[in-house]
Amino acid sequence: MKGPEPDDGWFWTGAISDDGYGRFWVKRDAGQQSVRPQRYAIELATGQVLAASTPLLHSCDIPICVHADADLQPSHVVPGTHPENMLDRFQRGRYRNRYTLRLGVLPRPVRVQRSLDLRAVILDHGWHPELISAALLGVEFSHPRLF
């Protein structure tokens, strides 16, 4: 589902794996291969197949967003390097281990559930900004908000 504004996300509504990201199968020269939709989207947009070792940097931090553009400026996913990916995840607060704990890092089951909830909202209601926001925040739509 593609949002109406140029900066909006494009959300994958297919299968979601146990890490909260989309996943599907494609036929390649070596047979069938499991692919993340955002990787496939950037390959379609740029016309180049990414090396398996090339990470994608995700500017919106929504695991099921596949907003990819050949012009990398508006794209929500862009190819990067491993050091760039590690720096990006640390700066965005998506990193924790036994030595560091960053507030705001979602445990894997929570990230998966939010992806499933977001997909359900989109499939049930289409592009509905208030419901999408509630799903991304992990709250009920009827939950009172300050703003």
Rank of each mutant, 00 (worst) to 15 (best):
A41I: 05
Y95A: 07
P83W: 05
R28F: 02
R28A: 09
M1E: 05
D61G: 01
H82T: 14
A51E: 14
W12H: 08
M86W: 02
P79N: 09
D88P: 02
R96N: 10
R145E: 06
D69M: 07
C60R: 07
R92L: 08
L72W: 14
G20H: 10
F141E: 09
P83D: 05
R92K: 15
A52G: 12
S59M: 07
F147I: 10
S142H: 11
F90V: 14
I62N: 04
M86H: 04
G138E: 06
P109E: 07
R92T: 13
E5D: 15
S75V: 12
G126T: 10
A45M: 09
P144C: 02
P129K: 05
F90A: 06
S133W: 13
G93F: 04
P129W: 05
S133M: 08
V77Q: 09
W25G: 01
A70Q: 14
L146Q: 12
T81E: 04
S17P: 01
D7T: 15
P129D: 03
F147W: 13
V78L: 06
P6C: 09
P4K: 12
Y40E: 12
P129H: 03
V49E: 13
E5I: 07
F90K: 15
G80E: 08
R145T: 13
V112N: 05
G80A: 03
S53D: 12
L101M: 10
S115Y: 09
G104T: 09
E130C: 00
D7R: 11
M86A: 07
R36L: 11
R98I: 06
D88E: 09
S75A: 15
V49M: 10
I62P: 01
S133R: 15
T46D: 03
L106E: 14
T54K: 03
Q73E: 15
G126C: 06
P109N: 06
T46R: 07
I62S: 00
R94C: 03
F141T: 11
Y95P: 00
V112W: 05
Y95E: 08
A135I: 08
S59I: 04
V139C: 07
I62G: 00
A135Q: 05
I62R: 01
H143E: 14
I122H: 01
Y40R: 10
S133A: 14
G22E: 04
V66W: 00
Y21M: 02
Q113Y: 00
H125C: 08
Q33I: 12
Y95M: 06
L106F: 04
R36Q: 13
V110G: 00
G104E: 05
V121I: 15
G22S: 03
R145K: 05
P6T: 13
A120T: 13
V78A: 07
R36Y: 11
Q113S: 04
R23L: 08
H58K: 11
D19E: 13
D124K: 11
K2C: 05
E84T: 07
A120N: 08
W127N: 01
I64D: 00
I62T: 14
Q32H: 09
R94Y: 07
G93M: 02
V35Q: 09
Q48D: 12
G14L: 04
V49K: 14
I122D: 01
N85V: 02
S34Q: 15
P107E: 12
R114F: 06
V26P: 01
L50K: 12
G3F: 11
Q33K: 15
G93S: 02
E140D: 15
L44W: 10
A134W: 09
P109T: 05
I16C: 01
W25R: 12
K2P: 00
A52E: 15
F141C: 02
F24A: 01
G3M: 11
